[in-house]
């Protein structure tokens, strides 16, 4: 009788201890999630998909707090958290992919804008060459040439930014240069039209 009682009590204590300690912190999943988030950050997620990155970081922090909450309990259960961590890892990979896609889109947009500006600069330079060569032409066109030089400098800077991976600032710079190149084009066309009209009335 005594032996049976002792055995029963021991079984109960062991079961309680087993329940309290059998569940281990899902360290492998935590490490995987952290690594995936780090990879997303390295890819530039915090810059290019800011909101997704914040959500990602917040999800991990929430899970980490819940892991501590489980650790605080007498009977721990990490199974849901394990699933959540796997979800975060998958989400981080998705965010990384999204970052790469966004960067590729930006890169294409910048390259296209730079190409457009270069074409505009080239067109403008050609227009200058084709413009009337009288003294009237020269004085106006010299000023426009200087403006074109500034646009070219700006576009070179945008190119350097693109090469060093500063996509957002590169895009803004390229856009501003495009606007200026367009306005120069309009100005140049107008100036040439004016000269052509005047050349007709001019005596030699």
């Amino acid at each position: 009788m005594k032996n049976k009682f002792s055995l029963g009590f021991l079984t109960l204590v062991l079961t309680a201890l087993l329940l309290a300690s059998c569940s281990k912190v899902p360290q492998a999943e935590i490490d995987a999630a952290n690594a995936a988030i780090e990879e997303a950050k390295t890819a530039g997620a915090d810059i290019y998909v800011h909101e997704d990155y914040i959500a990602l970081q917040d999800s991990l922090n929430a899970v980490m707090a819940n892991i501590e909450a489980q650790k605080s309990k007498f009977i721990k259960n990490y199974s849901t958290l394990k699933d959540q961590l796997s979800g975060i890892t998958a989400y981080a990979q998705e965010v990384k992919q999204k970052t790469e896609t966004r960067k590729a889109e930006l890169k294409t947009e910048i390259e296209n804008t730079i190409a457009e500006v270069k074409t505009l600069v080239e067109t403008n330079r050609q227009l200058i060459l084709e413009a009337p060569k009288g003294k009237e032409g020269t004085s106006a066109l010299v000023a426009i040439k200087d403006e074109l030089n500034a646009v070219e400098t700006s576009i070179n800077e945008a190119n350097s930014m693109l090469e060093s991976g500063e996509y957002l600032t590169a895009l803004d710079k390229a856009k501003a240069a495009k606007e200026k190149a367009n306005s120069i084009n309009a100005e140049l066309t107008e100036v040439i039209a004016k000269y052509k009209a005047n050349v007709k009335g001019k005596k030699s």
Partner: peptide, 19 residues
């Protein structure tokens, strides 16, 4: 010529700032 370029640069900076 340099100053004209600087002036054009300042107009570009204004565009970039507005953007």
């Amino acid at each position: 010529s340099e100053d004209r370029e600087e002036l054009a640069k300042s107009k570009l900076l204004l565009n970039e700032g507005i953007l």
